[in-house]
Structure formats: structure tokens, C-alpha cells
Amino acid sequence: MKVSLFLTCLADVVYPASVGRSTVEILERLGCEVDFPKKQTCCGQPAFNSGFHKESREVAKHMIKTFESAEYVVSPSGSCTSMLHEYEKLFEDDLEWQVKAKELAKKSYELTQFIVDVLKIEDVGAEFNGNVTYHTSCHMTRLLGVKEAPMKLLENVKGLKFTELPFKQQCCGFGGTFSVKMVPISEQMVNEKVHHIEETEAEVLIGADLGCLMNIGGRIDRQGKSVKVMHIAEILNSRGEAG
């Protein structure tokens, strides 16, 4: 199966290479042939959510073209994947691009969704030793509708001691530009999230969206706390490491 990786700008520019690397390695281990269209940039969500739809449309067109020949597009982000599904709305007055947007949406998957729903695999043979908890990101669960897939995969990771995060459905306060436009509110939200994470006594917080992880992890680091933040791809690519 041929898979084109949509890395996302956060994984590409801000985060260390390991998120992308893990995504590629897992997919290859599961029998996929992975390519990386080099022209890819960002999904356009920052402009879309800020109401700059003309600007978002330019980015969307670029992304549609970049992934035009892909069989499947897989991304280590629920939020960015859900944005690919929003493109259709951007081209309500442009049938040609709307058709293309729909085609892209149809073949685009978040990583865990792809593994569970398309590859039909629930055990990726991973082993990770440590106490962990998992942050369900809002766009992945509510907009993309992916709720079960990450849990199914984590259940089969050997060595994982899992504690459910209290108030897991609560947003962490990232919200893209919200995190910089509404700093005082975002601060309260992320404080509450960090507090609940600490309640679980987990050593590692796992998430499937780098936006949330950057927000929560950034706050944890600023507060000098020791909880480590890891992307689910890094966990699923583990072979017996310890948290």
C-alpha cells in the first residue's frame, strides 16, 4: 500500500524529527511504502480558523496539488487531518476545486485511524515501559470523529501502564491562534489540564496532536515539572524503551 506522509508544519519546523521518523517507520513496518511529497507545507488551518479564508484557500490549493497523485495521505495529527476535510467548504463557489478537495478528504487519514480502520491492525508490536496517560485532542475526536483508534493501539502496547486522564474531554487551551490571542484564558485552561495530568501520576503524557502537546508540554516545562510529553507515533514505534 502506498502512503504519502503529510508531516504537518509543526512536526516539520518546530518539533524534533522523531515524530515524523516514527510515523514513517511504523507505516513501513506495517507494510506500507511511504513517500514524502517535498512541496508540502501547512494545512492552512491558522488562516482558516482566524477567518482569513481567501488566504486559507491559497494554501489549500497548494496542498491539494501537492497530494493530487497520492493513494493515501496519512498524517500524525488529528487536527490537521480534519482541516483537510474542511477544504470542501472553502470551495463552495468553485466546483472544480471542490471536487478536488473532496478527493483529498476521501483519501486522508490521521495515523492511528489509518492503522486501525484501513490497515485493520490493532497491535503494532510496540513495547513501552512506563506510567502513561493520554490526551484526547478536540479536533481529532469531535471534528474527525476518531475516538477509539488511539486507545485500541495503546491497549496493545506492551509494558504500558495506563491511567485515564480525568476530564479528558476538556480542551487543553491550545486552539491555534487562541493560544496567543487569549493568553490569560489559555493559561487557565492549560493549568487545569496539567493539574489533571499530575493527578494521574503518569510519567508520560501521550497525544496525537502536536498543537496540544506543544501547549501542554510547553506549560509543563515552564512550570519546571517532570512529566514528559510524547506523540503517539513515538510510543507506537517504541521497542522496549522506558518513559
Binding site: 516539520d12 514524502f36 517535498k38 492549560v190 506543544m214
Partner: peptide, 21 residues
């Protein structure tokens, strides 16, 4: 600047994904 009022940023480490790939 607004981000760093309350949060740190991930530290860049080592080679980029693109280079690795």
C-alpha cells in the same frame, strides 16, 4: 512572544526530518 509569556517551546534537536528522509 505571546506564546512564551506562559509556555516554553520544544528545543530543536539534531537533524531535521527532511534531512533524515
Amino acid at each position: 512572544k505571546l506564546w512564551t509569556q506562559i509556555r516554553d517551546l520544544p528545543e530543536p534537536t539534531g537533524e531535521s526530518f527532511r534531512k533524515w528522509f
